[in-house]
């Protein structure tokens, strides 16, 4: 009896959270999976079609294009974020004046909501009065203003820059915490062993940061998989769908009233993210055991 109460008690404590998770996470997921098996288009009769939406999806060139874009986006932004974030962290870890203030400043881009930071970048890249073109013209690097968002490459670049600007600080924060957990003795020892700053970084510090970097890598990859707001604000997925991410692609179907098809896309995206999350949890558990 006592045992039972004990057990019950522990469930009672977690139950509010369980209710929230069920309400806001579990039910929508199951709902999406459910919806994805229907022809559910506004003004049309709902019809159970089982996996037909998925079949269409696999034959949908637009979907593949958005998937290709998303993967390319991840392949470019995540390494950039890791490298820049790590570089920032190393600088912020040095004994430099105003270190506290600098640390706070670096975090600002991350603290700004992405929709707003995307708006800021929109101003920067504006064709007629943007900062980017102003700099290009006034330094004479270019004769005429560049239509940043109008070309495939240009649009891709603007999106990448905006995203890296926003999330590199996040990586910097993680890596900085990792750097601070490297015992100071080790760096002193490396000094005594006559290693210079660069050798110490690459031979001692960086290998010790491996777990943190791996976590950042997975975390950023999963997050970038569902990239939406930056692109939505900056390019709307254009030009000609060149910067349409998978989630933006799904969103367009929802907007068009095709909930079944949109849900199918979301579910596929969810599956990929889910697999990666499981991997992430495995890795972080593995890390705890180290």
């Amino acid at each position: 009896m006592k045992n039972f109460i004990k057990k019950f008690e522990s469930y009672a404590f977690v139950s509010p959270l369980l209710v929230f998770v069920a309400l806001f996470v579990l039910i929508p997921i199951i709902g999406s999976i459910w919806t994805s098996m229907f022809r559910d288009v506004t003004f049309l009769k709902m019809k159970f079609i089982f996996l037909d939406n998925y079949g269409d999806l696999l034959r949908d060139e637009g979907f593949w294009k958005s998937l290709r874009f998303t993967l390319l986006f991840i392949a470019v932004t995540v390494p950039l974020e890791l490298i820049i974030g790590t570089a920032f962290a190393v600088v912020l870890d040095l004994k430099i004046p105003f270190r506290g203030l600098l640390r706070a400043c670096v975090l600002v881009p991350w603290a700004i909501p992405s929709a707003i930071s995307a708006k800021i970048w929109e101003l920067v890249y504006n064709y007629s009065y943007g900062l980017a073109n102003y700099i290009l013209l006034s330094t004479g690097l270019s004769e005429a203003p560049v239509n940043w968002i109008g070309t495939d490459i240009g649009a891709f670049t603007t999106v990448v820059v905006a995203d890296v600007w926003k999330t590199a600080p996040f990586v910097a924060l993680l890596v900085l915490a990792g750097l601070q957990s490297v015992p100071s003795d080790l760096r002193l020892q490396a000094k005594i062993d006559r290693a210079n700053f660069v050798q110490t970084f690459f031979l001692i510090t960086l290998p010790l940061l491996k777990p943190v970097l791996l976590v950042s890598l997975l975390f950023r990859t999963i997050d970038s998989l569902r990239v939406f707001d930056v692109i939505y604000v900056l390019t709307h997925g254009g030009p000609g769908g060149a910067t349409t991410s998978v989630s933006l692609y799904a969103y367009k179907y929802f907007l068009g009233g095709d909930f079944g098809y949109g849900s199918a896309i979301s579910v596929l995206l969810f599956l990929v993210a889910f697999v990666m999350s499981v991997f992430y949890i495995k890795v972080s558990k593995f890390q705890d055991n180290l």
Binding site: D185, L188, Q189, I192, R194, L208
Partner: peptide, 20 residues
């Protein structure tokens, strides 16, 4: 002179072995 040029070796209380 930086430690690099002094050619001294040191053993710390914590041993400071490179864990990796």
């Amino acid at each position: 002179m930086p430690p690099k040029e002094r050619n001294v070796a040191m053993v710390f209380q914590t041993y400071a072995l490179y864990p990796h």
